[in-house]
């Protein structure tokens, strides 16, 4: 019976809809900042002109060699370059604020991939993860929260035949599961490779990495790497956390704590090592494990808001949507199937 219940739940109840919407919004923001932080240097870094640091013909060679694709490879015209770049920026902005639905997310994925390929020396694990997770997000209902709905999507859905429409929830759950498995793969692999490294075994890796000027926060990093206890604990807790991550999220009790630990870990990477985009991408994907905690936090914020509104009735913006209680548990009590 358990298996049947599990399949029922997987087919009828969307998991982690709130978390995955958060993932979409935050990934959109990281993408947006990739455009914004290189905006003034865009011609030098990505442009087709003679002042480009990677001449266009070498870029074309690279693309061909990899068998890859980039919109920036289609033309050497300056107008085309500016159009694709600005379109990409707008798509990232739309994904961040939840405008336009999954079609825009797909367009953002293609445009961002194109820009990644234009200057592949810039890429790190965060970009790699974003590029893998965006197609998975396309399966999910990641516009349910934190978004503006145009109503178009709903109208399209209503026209779809019944049989196709009821695939929505299973596909959503499949997408969420894919992101979860991907995250486990990322953390476990990076943990297991660390275990093999000499400085990770010695417990001194943090000391060495934080001293490299490219990853140093002057004035602050030295406080960490000059403290023997912090270096040892930091190095060992990093590998332990990474290797045991799947266990931490498979046990529902431990799940929010594991995700919170991961977020804390990546916030410190962002601050101390200056890898803002990498850190926020990891955090964005961790949000899928925090759906119920996020829902609770949102309830708290709302009740505080409501109390505040009662005190100041003059400037109230009424906007409480009817929400279903949030759950990121895959297996719950069986629910009666509605509308399918």
């Amino acid at each position: 019976m358990r298996i049947k219940e599990a399949i029922d739940a997987a087919a009828s109840r969307p998991i982690a809809a709130l978390g995955v919407s958060g993932t979409r919004a935050l990934l959109g923001f990281v993408g947006l900042m990739y455009y914004v932080s290189h905006y003034s240097d865009r011609n030098y870094l990505f442009g087709p002109g003679p002042d480009s640091v990677l001449p266009h013909h070498l870029f074309i060679e690279e693309i061909k060699e990899k068998g890859s694709f980039s919109l920036y490879a289609w033309s050497t015209s300056q107008v085309w370059f500016e159009a694709v770049f600005h379109l990409g920026l707008l798509a990232a902005l739309a994904v961040t604020f939840g405008v336009g639905g999954r079609m825009v997310l797909a367009a953002h994925g293609v445009l961002l991939w194109s820009l990644y390929e234009r200057q592949s020396a810039f890429l790190d694990g965060g970009d790699n993860l974003a590029q893998l997770v965006i197609p998975m997000l396309l399966l999910t209902d990641c516009y349910r929260h934190f978004s503006f709905s145009s109503g178009l999507a709903q109208r399209v859905t209503r026209r779809l035949p019944e049989g196709l429409r009821c695939l929505g929830v299973p596909l959503h759950n499949l997408g969420v599961a894919a992101i979860a498995v991907q995250m486990c793969l990322v953390y476990v692999v990076s943990g297991l490779y660390k275990v093999q490294g000499e400085v990770w075994q010695d417990g001194t890796a943090l000391f060495y990495i934080m001293r490299v000027p490219e990853f140093e926060l002057p004035g602050w990093s030295s406080l960490v790497y000059h403290n023997d206890v912090v270096v040892f604990l930091g190095t060992y807790s990093t590998t332990l956390f990474l290797v045991y991550f799947p266990m931490g999220i498979l046990v529902p009790r431990l799940r929010p704590w594991t995700a919170a630990a991961s977020i804390a870990f990546h916030v410190s990477i962002g601050v101390f090592m200056g890898l803002t985009a990498f850190a926020l991408t990891m955090i964005a994907c961790d949000l899928i494990f925090l759906s119920s905690a996020l829902a609770r936090a949102r309830e708290t914020v709302r009740s505080i808001g409501a109390r505040w509104a009662q005190k100041h009735p003059a400037d109230v913006a009424t906007g409480t949507e009817g929400e279903t209680p949030e759950s990121d548990r895959t297996i719950d009590a069986p629910v009666p199937q509605t509308a399918s």
Binding site: K66, G67, S68, W113, G125, N128, Q131, L132, L185, V186, V189, S190, Y193, K194, Q196, G197, E198, V199, W200, A205, Y208, I209, R211, V212, P213, E214, F215
Partner: peptide
């Protein structure tokens, strides 16, 4: 896997950068 699903997760491992 290549090019769209290429991945590499040996982040700062097994031997992280140590030198300037």
């Amino acid at each position: 896997l290549e090019p769209y699903f290429t991945q590499n997760w040996s982040l700062f491992a097994p031997n992280p950068t140590k030198d300037d």
